[in-house]
Nucleic acid binder design. Structure first.
Lengths: 350, 350
DNA sequence: CTGAAAGCGCTAACAT
DNA sequence: ATGTTAGCGCTTTCAG
């Protein structure tokens, strides 16, 4: 790797002094307090003064010093979102939804991640706490409830699609067991009988989705033995597909779209087409994992509702609600082209 | 969408008082200043005192109030990273690299994004400025240099893989024109003559990559007319592939892996296999976009170096460097299985 | 090596 | 409707 380096011009030492409230007050001849109230749109200031202040502030390039403001007011107007994995589009979608609602309520959003590592997730959470953000939304995180709940006493925490045992937290989640059951039953209805599951392991909804798959299979009198995987990345899907190659099922329930996607691609490399040879259903209905028009049949967890409800719960907490809420959202089947009727099913309907 | 809601127990009003430095001082019988220095590992405190202080702090669950600390010290120990798109794994990889180096240097990382919208990117930048973070790394952002450069006077900003005209900023970038040329020449060497490009439009390296493609084609005496696309999402790839269906080339240079991936999937839906019928080369070598072992031939931009160099430049600025640096990293071809010799090329070598 | 005191920039409760 | 005052919790001189 060649690397061309060049030094260019130079500029101010880097730390030009920022304009303060005092500067604005001096420039307009009013008190600091009046400036503060003007700029924040609070009552108690004449319209004329407000105009002058606003103009002066702009001219001076004044920007509120948030640390100072937070220290004095004990509120920052910022909420933190901690996502489990930056690589999973599900989280990207969800944080889009969170931002939209948060911004509509005058809150700014900052992101953190633990890269699927519990200790680093915890550090991200502590960072937000140190910053004294107004609250945190945890999405798809793997941390244990025991570690998070004590923090909730100082700073409201809402868990989204994670922390199933966190009873002392506001929580909004998808009924993953139901979702996986719906996915499985969809394939069964299409006439498939040999159905495999690529599961997610212990993270987030992995267990519930596995349970949903197993229950649906048993209820249909089918064997739920073919289970591979143990993660939520596309590598999981690829590796799982390889394992399934030995005894190829006619359909696969993947624990997430990303996983399904990895499996589809890997199968293709082995000359196995989806849905031609194998039907594949994903989970999450995440935009990027299903980029190609309508390809991947999947389970939609209404992640936009997940996100907006999470912010709403957080805002309620900021407004003083002392109880904790639990919301379970019902998932939905989204039928696309990656699943088709079983070849035999077409003729004899079972 | 059914939604089950339930209210559960209730807990403290939410705002338990946090332990302060004063509390720790009182508990140990030393001054606040001594506590502060102990906890920060500064010299000037006896080892015995430090031990006692550390223990008391832990027992009290003390956590430094970062706003207060930032206000007093004018440093926060936090840097902000603004990424162009949460959905593109390239950014996820890059921010992984940034975090690693930053954390090794005692800096904590927070993320922001503008969702490919310039105004929202600007807001993210202002948020970081308001927070008085120590510096910001802009990766793949679409904001204009004019808007960013003034802010650099107050808070160091490093641009990564974006802002090509920002001469007053520290900048580290990949030579995208060279990269696209390498990609194109790779296909030409494989015997392809009808090569199309799915381009990225005006964002980040889109222009340079297009230029590299065009130059390489012209230099080889080939036509560079078949250019479709205009974005960096997988949808761009899918749509581009559809356009190319009419007059199918034997090879495609995509402006990013995500785009290549979208194209590959779309082609598959039309019964066209890669590399069987068409060779496809991507750009970025991003992990998630090439999940399946070794499939997608691509151009590696050494994003981990991009990320670590960016942090290093930022740290230099924090340590007082007044000049601005520009680093151009040379990309590298990564040959995998999505590109093969042109059928005719196999026989007559061109 | 330790303690006292000043102040970072802002907000909020008060007095005018 | 405006101005004054006292902190918020921490860091950092500067005496001891």
């Amino acid at each position: 790797m060649l690397c061309i380096v060049s030094a260019r011009g130079m500029s101010a030492t880097g730390s030009e002094r920022e304009a303060t409230l005092r500067d604005v007050a001096a420039a307009t001849g009013v008190s600091e307090a009046a400036v503060s109230m003007s700029l924040r749109g609070l009552p108690g200031v004449s319209e004329k003064t407000r105009q002058r202040v606003t103009k002066a502030a702009e001219q001076l390039g004044y920007r509120r010093n948030l640390p100072a403001s937070t220290l004095a007011a004990n509120r920052s107007g910022i909420i933190g979102v901690i996502v489990g994995d930056l690589h999973n589009p599900f989280f990207a979608d969800l944080s889009d939804a969170v931002s939209a609602v948060a911004e509509a309520n005058g809150l700014r959003v900052l992101l953190g991640t633990g890269y699927y590592d519990r200790q680093r997730e915890m550090e991200a959470l502590e960072t937000f706490r140190d910053l004294r953000v107004d609250g945190v939304i945890l999405v798809g995180a793997g941390i244990e409830a025991d570690h998070v709940e004590p923090i909730d006493a100082f700073m409201p925490v809402v868990a989204v699609a994670c922390l199933p045992r966190a009873d002392a937290l506001d929580r909004v989640a998808v009924d993953d067991q139901l979702g996986a059951r719906m996915a499985t039953e969809h394939l069964i209805e299409l006439g498939h009988t040999e159905i495999a599951h690529i599961h997610g392991g212990s993270i987030a909804g992995g267990q519930d989705r596995l349970a949903g798959f197993t229950t649906a299979m048993h209820d249909a009198g089918l064997s739920a033995e073919q289970v591979v995987g143990g993660g939520f990345t596309s590598e999981t899907g690829a590796k799982g597909a390889v394992e399934l190659l030995e005894d190829l099922p006619s359909a696969i329930v993947a624990c997430s779209d990303l996983v399904a996607w990895g499996a589809v691609a890997e199968l293709a490399r082995h000359g196995i087409s989806v849905p031609g040879h194998v039907s594949v259903i994903g989970y999450d209905n995440s935009t990027t994992a299903a980029p190609v028009g309508d390809f991947l049949t999947t389970i939609d967890g209404h992640r936009s509702e997940l996100g907006s409800r999470a912010v709403e719960l957080l805002i309620q907490r900021l407004n003083g609600r002392a109880t904790r809420e639990l919301e379970i959202i019902e998932p939905q089947l989204v039928t696309r082209t990656s699943t088709v009727a079983h070849p035999r099913g077409e003729n004899c309907d079972g």
